[in-house]
Design a protein around this nucleic acid. Structure first.
Lengths: 344, 344
DNA sequence: CGCGGCATCCAAAGCGCTTTGGAAATGATT
DNA sequence: AATCATTTCCAAAGCGCTTTGGATGCCGCG
């Protein structure tokens, strides 16, 4: 059942039926009722492709997800919650989400294709690196886009929403320093990512401000998995000068750190303290009620919602100036932190 | 730059240019070269909507993800890995993935719309329940679809790929029984899900075969989060007749169970054994090398790949008979299991 | 009574592609 | 040289929608 058939059956022109269905004023209310009833009865839905071709809007928003044998973004812990939040907002506005999975090497081509093909009206950029080339690319392609995170060294303005990773890690590290910890391990995410750089900067700033030297022996950077947290923490704990506290970039490696601590017959929050960044991942919540880990918390799902809203606004008015938001993480105190143990 | 402009510039008809680009034989090889070069030079990509409108194929595959305030599928641990695998295969075949996020109540409508609008050429059904209504719906809508999992009580044939959950849990429970455990807790996923029912059936079958009574006091069912595993295990461990072993439906609650065991100053694999189902989630791997948990393992990413392949085959030949695959999980032995502790 | 204004509807022209049904040119065959 | 098959190309008709630019009829008003 298409528009022509429907209009013939109603004895109306396609114009009128289309207008009736799309809520235009120049159609008699009685006629509109009749049209809507008929459309309902035949379960009529306008063809999205025809509609898109006529209007020039695809009503789809693109997310490009690079993958490789080693790692990929979709398996990044925070990704699924982010798109969950974004997807909600898309749905409210009649948009669908287009996910394009591509090899790392083909990423640029994927952006180009999606835009040139006209498959999407806007795009979200995930996991920006420093000086991320995708920002310039999308500007060149002249399509609305929104960055989840920030890209250091990109000077032209662009739309982004980021959490203030540096101040979050600065504060969290200060919190440990205030508890008397002087040797604090950093178990960071992959420092290809801009946010990981910022977290390290916050960590280092806090140490430096107290006159504690940066020691790369107790600093790691990698994809944020549980075994990574475990092995990194094990190495440090069994070293000559083990840390008394850890800063972790996500709750996932933090779970590994916990396992490492307990495997050394030490107790979390007493012998060794742990603070992590908590993205409030829905299936990996930081406890119910009292937090498991003392953490810098910021909901990635909320970020997804907000990015989607702002992107849709940008699509609606592409001439609007770029907007940016910088969210502060909140520091929640759980049972994973305590005073530094007395030295022997 | 569209087809007309390109063809005018080349002094050729749209027909010839289109055919040259799409690899049809009735075009001179020299001409084809010239066309391809020009297309490349102008960075020309045919409009997807126009193409879809003309061919009737959207080259998109739909995934409907219901969400609610409580839980949603996208945040389900296994989901992101599944779509990661599926997305790879889609990309290889020129398909894109369309994700539609909808309220639980609107799920049926979402399927209807996506199909009627012509936005998708096929669909994947996630997380089937018993007697899942979506199967009948998609048959009525007459669109190729593929189910990840199975739906008990649906008698008409349909495409699916499932892991033999029952036999996996049967074998795993037998493994614990062989180690002398007689009181084994079950920390299952939500039993709205078909697979959770099957896992429980496997667990119960193993117990019954040894003449051990089913005791619902040590059986739980819920969304598979870490805190759920923790609190469920805590309750059981502090009860009058605590289990000496646990079966968990995923590695995520298993991590919670581990935390619960250690919070009771007990040791995993010595005082209390744990076996979980391991979906081989990429950022939550079951250790590196030696498994953390003894587990029934089956890669959900591989399942995603395979579902995508089979769905694409079905789209290519919609008259083909439904296919189904039932994968066996492998039982991998880690450090989380050991002989039942001697009774006092 | 004639005219402007309003409400309601419609014919037709796109949107950018694919594909059908030839046409023209070329080469091979008799 | 005439015929026929091939190769190579093209004009034009869709695909199903939106939207422009009227047309029609009806009303009130001077």
């Amino acid at each position: 059942m298409n528009l022509r058939q429907l209009s013939e059956e109603l004895g109306l022109s396609q114009t009128t039926v289309s207008r009736a269905l799309n809520g235009y004023p120049e159609v008699n209310e009685a006629t509109r009722q009749r049209v809507q009833a008929a459309a309902e009865a035949h379960n009529y839905r306008p063809s999205q492709q025809a509609k898109s071709l006529a209007t020039g809007k695809s009503m789809q928003i693109g997310h490009v997800i690079p993958f490789s044998a080693q790692h990929d973004m979709v398996s990044n812990v925070v990704f699924s919650d982010f798109i969950g939040g974004a997807g909600e907002v898309y749905a409210q506005h009649g948009y669908d989400m287009l996910l394009s999975m591509v090899n790392f090497d083909d990423e640029e081509r994927a952006y180009r294709e999606l835009v040139r093909k006209g498959s999407v009206d806007g795009m979200i950029v995930h996991g920006p690196t420093q000086d991320d080339p995708r920002i310039a690319l999308l500007k060149e392609l002249d399509i609305p886009f929104f960055v989840h995170g920030r890209s250091t060294h990109v000077t032209t303005p662009y739309n982004y929403l980021d959490v203030n990773s540096k101040s979050a890690f600065r504060r969290a590290t200060d919190f440990l320093l205030d508890l008397g910890h002087e040797r604090i391990g950093l178990i960071n995410g992959s420092e290809r990512m801009d946010f990981a750089q910022r977290r390290r900067a916050g960590y280092e700033a806090a140490l430096t401000a107290r006159g504690i030297a940066i020691d790369t022996d107790i600093m790691r950077s990698n994809e944020m998995t549980e075994p990574y947290g475990f092995s990194a923490a094990c190495e440090m704990l069994t070293s000559e000068n083990p840390p008394t506290a850890f800063m972790a970039s996500s709750i996932v490696p933090a779970l590994g750190i916990r396992r490492a601590i307990e495997s050394q017959n030490l107790t979390v929050g007493r012998d060794v303290s742990v603070i992590c960044f908590d993205d409030a991942i829905s299936y990996m919540p930081n406890g119910e009620g009292e937090p498991i880990f003392t953490a810098a918390r910021s909901s990635v799902r909320d970020a997804g919602r907000r990015c989607a809203e702002l992107l849709i606004a940008q699509i609606a008015d592409p001439t609007a100036d770029p907007v940016s938001e910088l969210w502060d993480a909140e520091l929640v105190v759980g049972r994973s932190t305590g005073p530094a143990p007395k030295k022997d």
